[in-house]
Design a protein around this nucleic acid. Sequence first.
DNA 1: ATACAATGTAGAGTAAACTCTATGTCAAGA
DNA 2: TCTTGACATAGAGTTTACTCTACATTGTAT
Lengths: 124, 124
Amino acid sequence: MEYSIGEFSRLTDLGIHTLRYYEHEGLITPGRNSSNRRCYSDKDLAWIEFIKRLKDTGMPIKEIQHYAKLRAAGDPTLRERMEMLTAHREALNEQIRQLQKHLTKLDDKIDFYRQEIDRTSKNN
Amino acid sequence: MEYSIGEFSRLTDLGIHTLRYYEHEGLITPGRNSSNRRCYSDKDLAWIEFIKRLKDTGMPIKEIQHYAKLRAAGDPTLRERMEMLTAHREALNEQIRQLQKHLTKLDDKIDFYRQEIDRTSKNN
DNA sequence: ATACAATGTAGAGTAAACTCTATGTCAAGA
DNA sequence: TCTTGACATAGAGTTTACTCTACATTGTAT
């Protein structure tokens, strides 16, 4: 299937402006039809979903841009791309660990608040 | 103990400019000495560490600002503050869940790359 | 044939969170 | 006394990632 930018925007939940911006930044390169309109494919759809995943896990656009360049260069860059992904996986693991640490601290704080509220309500 | 902004900057790992910015935004209100220099206390230190935790878990400055206002208003705002924190805890839980989902997808992708690299290296 | 909605480009504007610059004050050491 | 370094304020500048505006084309329904 092929999609216009409007359809693709709905499918991906990314604004039309954002899609054009991503293209401008070299993250994605949809085909064009005879009237110069963008034609997004299902491959583009899978790719943009992956881009979203990288973004949502904290990878900056610049780095995704680099990855996209390697991807466009094809098989010879497979190894380098995998190295990027394994490095990113480590970062993500660390990120999750940090958040879990923060979560337990937040739990502690909330417990403390619970006690305080209990104490101040008794104190009448 | 009391600290100058320079000392406090080292202790908190936040730039001097950032500390002044936080103060400007109402996140923290250090005392002043006779020469109008900022005097940060140990209480300020504990507070800024908590601010960092909120920030690192994705709370925007505006919301931390609101929390700081409640905190400054004292005991009558205990309950509202706790509600903010429990809401934030839920957001954090969800964030961690999402990241874990992303992590397994990333693992899959890396496995796929491993196979591809294996295949292309055999294919000579 | 005409209207109108979607699309195209180029470039400006926005929001968040800093980060830096210019300029001035002040306490302490040479 | 003079200089230096840390600190003060006000406001400008930066970075990232969009988001929007202005204006020109094009495809489709009436």
